[in-house]
Amino acid sequence: MAHATHHIIPRPLLLKVFLTLVALTIITALTGQADLGVFNFLHVPLAIGIAVIKASLVVLFFMGLKYDRPVNALAFIIGLLMVGVFLAFTLLDMLYRGDIGNLSPEPIRGPQIEQVEAPAGH
C-alpha cells in the first residue's frame, strides 16, 4: 500500500547529483582561493550562490522534496523565510546604527588591543 505514493529516486540520478556536488565543492574551493582582480567583490555572492545551489540539490534530490508532499516543502520554506526575517531586520539595525547621531555606530569597545598586522597564514 505504501508503494503507491512513494517515489523511488533512481540510482543514476543520485550519482549524478553527488558528482555535481563534488564538482561544485571544487569550484567553490578554487574560486574562494583565487584572486579575482577587479571582480573580487564577487567572492561572497559566488560562495553563497554555490552553497545555495548545493543545498538545493541535496534538498530536492537526496531528501526527495521534489517528489514529496507540498506541505513538507512548506514547513521547510517557512523555516528558511524566518531565517531571512531574522537576518534582514537585525542587519537593518546594525547597518544604520548611530543614525540619530548620538550613538557610536559600533558597540562599546572592550579593552583596546594594539592592532598588529597579521602575517597571512601560518
Binding site: 514529496d68 508532499r69 506541505v71 513538507n72 514547513a75 521547510f76 517557512i78 523555516g79 528558511l80 524566518m82 531565517v83 531574522f86 537576518l87 537585525t90 542587519l91 546594525m94
Partner: peptide
Amino acid sequence: KLGMWIFLATEILLFSGMFVAYAV
C-alpha cells in the same frame, strides 16, 4: 515525515542565530 521536516525547520532556526551573529 511532516514531523521530521518541521523538526528540520527548528534546526535551521537554531543555527540561524549563529549565522546572524556571523553576518553582523
